[in-house]
């Protein structure tokens, strides 16, 4: 028994979730460049590389989560038959994913703040055997 509505739901959900992730990551890491430059004291090469690495991690994690929550369970209690049900399920999935993305965004921002604070602290004096 193939349920056409489920295929439609997947076809709507996947592009929205993936494009949303793409857009958020692009905006976040375009703005994160300033942070990275400050954390690495203006050394451009390593700052851009770190930024790129963070971006890859963000993509991996969020694409993974988006695919993980894709499945729609159909049972006797939850027959997936009406358009209303389709809208409700989609809203729950897309909205939940959006909130998750927001939390991840703030988490990344927190990491940047932390890095910036650490970078601006005066370095402790390291005692060497010669000194």
């Amino acid at each position: 028994m193939e349920n056409k509505l489920i295929i439609i739901a997947y076809a709507i959900y996947l592009p929205i979730a993936l494009l949303l992730t793409f857009y958020v990551a692009k905006t976040l890491f375009k703005n994160a460049k300033v942070f990275m430059l400050e954390i690495f004291h203006g050394k451009e090469e390593i700052a851009l590389a770190t930024n790129r690495l963070f971006e890859i991690g963000f993509y991996l994690m969020n694409f993974g989560f988006a695919l993980l929550i894709l499945k729609i369970n159909v049972s006797e209690y939850n027959p997936f038959e009406t358009t209303q049900k389709l809208i409700e399920t989609l809203s729950y999935k897309i909205g939940g994913f959006s909130i998750y993305l927001g939390v991840m965004l703030f988490f990344n921002l927190l990491l940047f703040f932390r890095g910036r604070r650490k970078a601006n602290q005066p370095k402790p004096i390291i005692r060497t055997a010669i000194g």
Binding site: I87, G95, Y100
Partner: peptide
């Protein structure tokens, strides 16, 4: 917006 949409269900 995520919260607003989630509440619909």
């Amino acid at each position: 917006i995520g919260y607003v949409i989630t509440i619909i269900s």
